[in-house]
Simulated assay, not measured.
Amino acid sequence: MAATELQALLRFLSQDAKVPLTTAMSKIKELQQHEANLTTPEKLATVKAKDIMSIFPDEKVAKAIVAAAKRVTKKRAAGENAAPSPKKRKRDALVPDEPIGPEDLEAAVALPVSSATEEELAAITIFSNRAPLFLAFTVTLLKHTMPEQPLTSRLSLAQAFISTSSRSRAVSLGIQTLDRKEVEAEELLAQGQPKVNIMGKEISILKRWGYEWERESVTAPTSEQDTAQNKTHELETEDGVADAQDVPNFEEQPALWALDLESLRKSNRSDITLANVRAGNNSSLPIYTPQSARAYLLKSFDSPADDKAPKSGASAKAAVKERNLGHLLRALAMLYDSWASTLDGVELDKRTWSWYVKVRPDVEQGVAGWGGKNEIRLADILALRRQP
């Protein structure tokens, strides 16, 4: 999507449809990915409100957008789309003609929020497979172990951890094969790259120097926690017990991207060389994008099938999944918050795997269970909280 088209769509949503700019920013990718490619008022004018409720779950907002799209389209057809007045141009300055800023980028990957009470959460059961659940655990964990990292970084790092863990599991089950040359190529590319340790796995990173965003209000680690961050420890992972690793002092880190070594190896592009990597020429290096991690989370948490319930359309199903993700993240936040005053980041990192194992969906063992889905009870997550 060209920059001018993006700016035009943002202007329409924020000015004509009265959608808050941060909300509009967060919905751009979903509008692009809609089967009708809803990136202009003309295209939005051809759909019904229910068709975009998977993107804008609030029915009033969805109706307002469609109505605004029809109104703008009608004016344009009547030749009323004249050059903007100075006053209009001043208003348009709210959407700058330059790359998206950090605060808008963070808003664009915002995750759904639930206001459900503890009792309401305890009654909720969702339906999913194991990988997205572990991704949700990891994103929540990183908010406590890397509180200085923005959401874009936490999503990128969490996706890298889940992807590398899943690949290791696939190789161990014989679902995927890697020859020695592929392994050596990735090891070579990783040499000299800075790394962070997440639950016993080393994740190669790129440092996003100069990236400034509106930081969240997070309780700063205590001095004891800072000391513990530098201790070595052994962590259990899905592939067994990892070797003891030094946990880096995350307080000193700028914002980070997780480097996608597999994509880098497979690219075979002449402009991506080991020399470039080591020289810090990172503009063309593939990363695990926060958008892909967010999209994966949003589509992964359904509700258990109910044969008596009437069948719903795609937009309604998407809205259910988004709500379920919000409920899951709230339950996980309550779990981690309950332990945050007692356990430092190292201990939270260490316990996450055992917590996940206790609540992950039951599936068949081995290859037969790969990608299998089952129920996840939020009451089981809440039961893991520290008792007063």
Rank of each mutant, 00 (worst) to 15 (best):
A116Q: 14
T145V: 14
S153N: 01
L157V: 10
I162F: 05
H144K: 11
P112N: 05
A220V: 12
T164L: 12
K181A: 14
L111W: 05
V171W: 07
A185N: 11
Y211M: 08
M146Q: 14
E186Q: 14
V218A: 13
Q149I: 03
A158P: 00
K195E: 11
V171L: 09
R154K: 14
T138H: 02
L188C: 08
M146Y: 12
E216N: 13
R169H: 08
Q193E: 12
H144E: 15
L111I: 09
G192E: 04
G174T: 06
G174P: 05
R169N: 10
A108V: 01
H144M: 09
R167F: 09
E186L: 06
L121S: 02
E187S: 10
L142C: 09
A160P: 01
E202F: 02
N129S: 15
S115D: 15
E118D: 13
F137E: 00
L173S: 05
Q193P: 00
A220E: 14
L111E: 09
L173A: 05
E148V: 05
G210L: 08
S165F: 02
E120D: 14
V196D: 04
A122Q: 07
A116F: 11
I124A: 05
R180P: 02
E184W: 11
K201D: 10
F127S: 03
V113R: 10
T125E: 15
S153K: 00
S217G: 04
F161A: 06
L133N: 04
S172C: 07
E118H: 07
F127C: 05
S156K: 03
S115Q: 13
S153A: 14
V171Y: 04
T145N: 09
W213M: 03
M199L: 14
Q193R: 15
G200V: 07
L121Y: 10
K201H: 13
P150Y: 08
V109Y: 02
A190E: 14
V171H: 05
L111Y: 02
P194L: 08
P132H: 12
P194V: 09
H144L: 11
P112W: 03
S165V: 06
Q159M: 15
E216F: 03
K201W: 04
S163K: 04
E184A: 15
E212T: 08
W209Y: 07
F137A: 04
M199H: 02
S114D: 11
T140A: 11
W209D: 12
F161C: 08
K207Y: 02
M199W: 04
V183M: 12
Q159W: 13
A116C: 02
E120C: 03
R208S: 02
P150K: 04
I126W: 05
Q191K: 13
M146P: 01
E148G: 13
D179A: 10
F127W: 14
P112L: 10
E216I: 03
G192K: 07
T177G: 03
L142E: 08
L173Y: 10
Q176F: 09
A110C: 03
L188K: 13
R180S: 11
A170H: 06
E118T: 14
W209M: 11
N197M: 13
E216P: 01
S165A: 15
I175Y: 06
A122P: 01
A122S: 15
A116G: 06
G192D: 13
S217L: 07
A185G: 01
K143Y: 01
S128I: 06
W213K: 07
A122C: 05
R167N: 08
M199Q: 15
A108P: 00
M199P: 03
L157R: 01
R169L: 11
